[in-house]
Nucleic acid binder design. Structure first.
Lengths: 233, 233
DNA sequence: TAGTATAATCTGGTTAACCAGATTGGTTTG
DNA sequence: CAAACCAATCTGGTTAACCAGATTATACTA
């Protein structure tokens, strides 16, 4: 189990190394937005790494909007300045994994906003989806079963109802990791879960009544225990 | 230019299709956390697609924490429940691209938090980095040049000073897209830029003095114009 | 029969060969 | 001389072959 983690880590280091080399190359050649990078084959030869690793590095930079690959044509510097490019790449290379506190802190932050937006913008079909998630959670809890997943899906339904595609995406990125940690550390005991039903219902009603302030307040109360837990570990 | 966009979109559809099939398979076989998926070769044969496409689908699901690939062993269902898995995959398949308003809205939201955290937690070296970004911005503006990139790098420096690795990552994901849009729509004219120097300075000083409330207030004022712009397009 | 050594098979990852389409340079033609 | 054509080359993407290590089935031994 340790070995494969090690090889993956090594691979990440290799890719980051190549990213740094690509950055140095772009600076050395004064490449500007729209300029073409050498082909993947050239880069892999120059850096003495496999073409696959070069491709991975390029794909990562493409994810962050630094490069743009066009089939049968080449890889180009995206429409972003040299200054920003250097700054962002430096940040990418320094990126560290999310710790649990950061995750929860961020989740609370995002959700206090999504719930307000959802209360303002929710459509009827959004409301139906949130209600369905709410019911699924309630049933599970009343059966005395663990309902961490249903809990989070209720919150994801709210995120979708917020009508903000960016927040929705970000929530989707952090939620699986949160679920894993919750189940690992048993953050939610049964008492919390039963109490959670009423809290969820309050949130749902506020969204239904399109009352953003109330929705936020209810969400804040709902997060109270989590908030304390988060700052006591 | 349209063609390659089309092929890439097609490819995304292919991958999403495979993701849906993998989900159906996992449900059909009642796979639970820790269970092993069929090998990539088997899946590619069963779905009648290339092994590469299967790998892409798996990698995407791995990114969202649904699956876990272990070299020379297999691909396993991650430590996340069946319910959450289905819900999250459904959301992934429905994910739409971020529109500009969502991006800006999210950025403002995140930054009003990061600046408070930065004021609370910033180290001395964080402060130095923020100051450097501030100076780079000022010099560029006073020279009468466009400084969108330096502007955003200043904000990224604050995000890093927040000590929240998750927010830092999320900011890094959305910033390049914001820069591109800013430069495209010329959001920042020169008057804004000059005014921005003082505003940036105020924010910096509040962080330096470790005054979270003031920092947030100054950031809010700084975002005032952007806020209006964002809701008037 | 239980335990162990071992060989055959299967795994995700990596490398190399191949593909269709874009690019480019030279040539021809009006 | 300019424009149109064409073939050679180069591109990122795709496919197929290969690899080292993990797994599993088998046979052998105590």
């Amino acid at each position: 189990m340790n070995l494969e983690a090690l090889t993956k880590k090594d691979n990440k280091e290799v890719v980051n190394n190549i990213i740094a080399k690509i950055r140095d190359y772009m600076n050395f050649k004064n490449l500007e937005p729209g300029d073409k990078l050498p082909s993947e084959r050239m880069l892999s030869e120059r850096f003495e790494v496999s073409r696959n690793s070069v491709r991975e590095a390029i794909q990562k930079l493409e994810f962050y909007g630094i490069l743009k690959s066009i089939p049968q044509s080449g890889t180009f510097v995206a429409n972003i300045g040299v200054i920003a490019m250097n700054g962002i790449i430096e940040d990418i290379l320094k990126l560290e994994e999310s710790d649990f506190r950061s995750l929860v802190e961020t989740r609370i932050l995002l959700e206090l906003k999504t719930v307000r937006l959802a209360a303002t913008r929710r459509t009827e079909s959004d409301l139906v989806a949130v209600k369905a998630a709410l019911d699924a959670y309630s049933i599970k809890v009343l059966d005395g079963e663990e309902a961490v997943q249903e809990d989070l899906l209720f919150h994801l339904a709210i995120a979708k109802a917020s009508g903000n595609s960016t927040i929705n995406t970000l929530m989707l990125i952090i939620t699986p990791e949160i679920i894993t940690n919750f189940e690992k550390y048993h953050v939610c005991d049964e008492g919390q879960a039963v109490k959670g039903i009423q809290e969820h219902l309050d949130i749902y009603n506020a969204i239904k009544d399109q009352n953003p302030q109330l929705a936020k307040q209810k969400m804040k109360e709902h997060f109270k225990a989590l908030y304390q837990y988060c700052y006591n570990i």
